[in-house]
């Protein structure tokens, strides 16, 4: 009995999340006028699910005390060079965002291609309630060329 109930609840939950996700996706796509942005967003979402989601979570709100949120923070919405460097070099210091401290280390993701980094950052900067300009492959390339760890 209990098993069935739990299964039903889970099912309902998953269905509603799916519907919600579909809605947000729809909205974002409508706003992104350029086809380039749309392509980059789609590709970026794939990179996000492969390399980011397990720590930063599906809603990008992170994990208390451990993994920082990617929503409404200058680390994500601010200077693109700094942001690209975080992906290339990782992040190994305590960070305070909105009064909460986060301490887990982020490994370097320098094995990602320039295009993949551009896509995932464009995706994150334009999802989860974020709105900021796209990151281009050329910008990643430039930062990588002059990157000092």
């Amino acid at each position: 009995m209990h098993l069935k109930k739990y299964a039903l609840l889970l099912l309902a939950l998953v269905l509603s999340t799916a519907a919600l996700q579909a809605q947000t996706k729809h909205k974002t796509i409508k706003k992104g006028a350029a086809i380039g942005l749309k392509t980059s967003m789609n590709a970026g979402q794939k990179v996000f699910s492969q390399y980011c989601v397990s720590c930063h979570q599906a809603d990008a709100l992170g994990v208390p005390h451990m993994n920082p949120p990617l929503v409404k923070t200058t680390y994500v919405l601010g200077d693109k060079t700094k942001l690209i460097k975080i992906v290339l070099n990782g992040f190994n210091e305590d960070v305070e965002i909105n009064g909460e401290t986060y301490s887990n280390s982020m490994p370097s993701h320098d094995f990602l291609k320039d295009q993949e980094i551009a896509d995932v950052l464009t995706f994150v900067r334009n999802s989860f309630g974020n709105k900021a300009s796209a990151v281009t492959m050329a910008q990643v390339k430039t930062v990588r060329a002059t990157n000092k760890k």
Binding site: L3, Y6, A7, L10, L11, L13, V14, L15, T17, A18, A19, A22
Partner: peptide, 21 residues
């Protein structure tokens, strides 16, 4: 895509539920 998602997700959910138990 949306239809496919709503078809597949419950299956995934139930599978993981069974696995968990």
């Amino acid at each position: 895509n949306r239809k496919l998602l709503s078809l597949l997700l419950p299956v995934a959910a139930i599978t993981s539920f069974i696995l968990f138990n």
